[in-house]
């Protein structure tokens, strides 16, 4: 495939199980079985160069696990992940070179910076590990440039993280992520811990940086309003699987999957149009014992016998793809 049009990141049937069994001794003494939690189950999607792909879903849907699989914090249980056409798992030697082209921004700005380090050391860590600077002066200049790029002052490098507010810390996190000149940023709920006015600052900054540096984002969030604002395309996850993937505008205008519709409906109405809301009953089921068939069927108003037995696959629909029998059959 032509390298320029080739997707930057490609997940093919990526899956990750977690062993949540009781300790060995308990299993032997109490006869408790081994238990596997399917956090991510057969997830496939492409991230195109220069775009923002968002993954959205409620807690426990596996969106953060997908992020950690891509950057290599977790190992895949099944499937494969390609970066720029190369299998990340297969390359032992070049993996480091490939990994420096992706970085991650975390959710909690209070936990993602080492409290004992000065900001300049935090930001410079990737340069030092990757040996990107020839000398201390070059490193200092780079750190100062990065800090200015994210809206901080070069002098802030001398301070410690606790001297900054949550939003400023998130800026430091972004500066560190940008330090090694990555092409791809995985952003795991980067604004969820921030107040709205600060969230707006960070979202604006991320959009600016994307434009200036040609970055590609994978943006993880539980907030559909934020996602629709920043993303080009949106993937909706439920219990470890992608249930709908579509252009942001398309998803907003015509959500296909009943779960997406429910999420859209749950967004509080700031315009106060007074439109009646029908809150969806029920909650996310226990991921250790997911329902048979479509995992959403116990909460779905459109479920029928097929939904309860046969698991729907992600199939293309106009402007995207949805995993729903009702959509496929034209019932919805």
């Amino acid at each position: 495939m032509d390298p320029a049009s080739r997707p930057l990141v490609r997940l093919i049937g990526a899956s990750r199980d977690f062993d949540v069994s009781r300790p060995w001794l308990n299993r032997v003494l109490e006869g408790a079985p081994r238990r596997l939690l399917r956090a991510v189950d057969d997830v496939s999607f492409d991230v195109r160069r220069g775009e923002t792909l968002a993954l959205v879903g409620e807690s426990g849907c596996g969106k953060s696990t997908v992020a950690r699989l891509i950057v290599g914090l977790y190992a895949l249980s099944r499937g494969r992940i390609e970066f720029d056409g190369l299998d990340l798992a297969a390359l032992e030697t070049d993996a480091a070179a490939l990994r420096r082209r992706m970085q991650m921004i975390f959710q909690d700005p209070y936990a993602s910076l080492n409290p004992r380090w000065r900001v300049r050391d935090i930001v410079a860590e990737p340069i030092r590990v990757l040996r990107l600077a020839d000398n201390d002066a070059a490193e200092g200049a780079r750190v100062a440039e990065l800090l200015r790029q994210v809206g901080l002052a070069a002098e802030d490098g001398e301070k410690y993280p606790h001297e900054f507010s949550g939003g400023q810390r998130q800026r430091i996190s972004i500066a560190r992520a940008l330090c090694g000149n990555p092409e791809f940023l995985v952003c795991d709920e980067p604004t969820s811990a921030l107040d709205v006015s600060v969230q707006a600052q960070i979202l604006n900054l991320m959009a600016e940086l994307q434009e200036r540096l040609g970055l590609t984002y994978l943006f993880i969030s539980h907030n559909l309003a934020v996602v629709l604002h920043i993303a080009d395309r949106v993937g909706v996850m439920y219990l470890g699987r992608v249930v709908e993937l579509a252009e942001a505008a398309q998803l907003f205008a015509t959500p296909r999957h009943p779960y997406t519709r429910m999420l859209m409906d749950a967004i509080p109405d700031l315009e106060m149009s007074g439109k009646p809301r029908t809150p969806v009953a029920g909650e996310v089921p226990n991921p250790l014992a997911p329902p048979a068939g479509c995992a959403f069927h116990p909460r779905c108003p459109h479920a029928n016998a097929r939904c309860r037995t046969e698991r729907p696959q992600l199939r293309p629909v106009a402007g995207g793809a949805a995993a729903c029998h009702a959509v496929e059959e034209g019932r919805l």
Partner: peptide, 10 residues
Amino acid sequence: SIPKLGAVKR
């Protein structure tokens, strides 16, 4: 500063 749903403007 709250992203508005009605105005999806990339």
